[in-house]
């Protein structure tokens, strides 16, 4: 009678199948609690945490330097930039584009600096479906090793104003 007042001392430990279920649920919660740190050490896919404070204007300047230094081609007027394997790459979220197009090599590791120079954006690499959140003022470093090759599209998946559904980019991975 969940609407009436229990009287007297109603305190008692669970018994029978209720006790079994509480125990089983607790075990399952512990399994999930252990899986996450286990994967942190053993797994190859972990959420990046390396972050630096950056002024949006300074970040844009670094992006432009990066493009000038490593541009190899262009597509639809967007520069294609090939960072040195193992080196730093830059990806800028701006209303409404991901700039520039990156050209990477399969199996090589890159430190991709992602930031926004205006609103919040969502970096989403397709069709892999890999996503991170991008904030202005935060230089977020994703240490990424492409394990597949081909052309990968980038979209924005955080609302960033009326042109949000036009905000795309690209990563090209050579085998």
């Amino acid at each position: 009678m969940s609407i009436f007042h229990p009287k007297g001392n109603w305190f008692r430990a669970p018994t029978g199948s209720e006790r079994m279920w509480v125990g089983l649920a607790l075990v399952w919660c512990l399994v999930m609690s252990i899986t996450m740190p286990w994967w942190h050490f053993q797994g190859k896919q972990n959420a990046p945490s390396e972050t630096y404070e950056v002024d949006p204007a300074a970040f844009m300047e670094r992006v432009n330097q990066f493009v000038d230094a490593h541009q190899v081609d262009e597509v639809n007027g967007v520069p294609i930039v090939e960072p040195p394997p193992g080196g730093d790459a830059y990806l800028m979220g701006q209303m409404w584009r991901w700039y520039p197009v990156l050209k990477l090599k399969e199996g090589q590791t890159y430190r991709i600096h992602v930031s926004s120079v205006d609103l919040q954006h969502g970096l989403s690499i397709l069709p892999l479906n890999m996503n991170v959140h991008v904030l202005p003022g935060y230089d977020y470093v994703m240490t990424v090793t492409p394990t597949t090759s081909g052309e990968f599209n980038i979209i924005c998946n955080e609302f960033c104003g009326i042109g949000h559904h036009l905000m795309t980019g690209r990563i090209i991975v050579e085998s």
Binding site: T35, G122, S124, H133
Partner: peptide
């Protein structure tokens, strides 16, 4: 809501 799995779910 698992840290790593969220990579393929966030904002989708």
């Amino acid at each position: 809501g698992t840290e790593q799995i969220n990579i393929m779910a966030h904002n989708t």
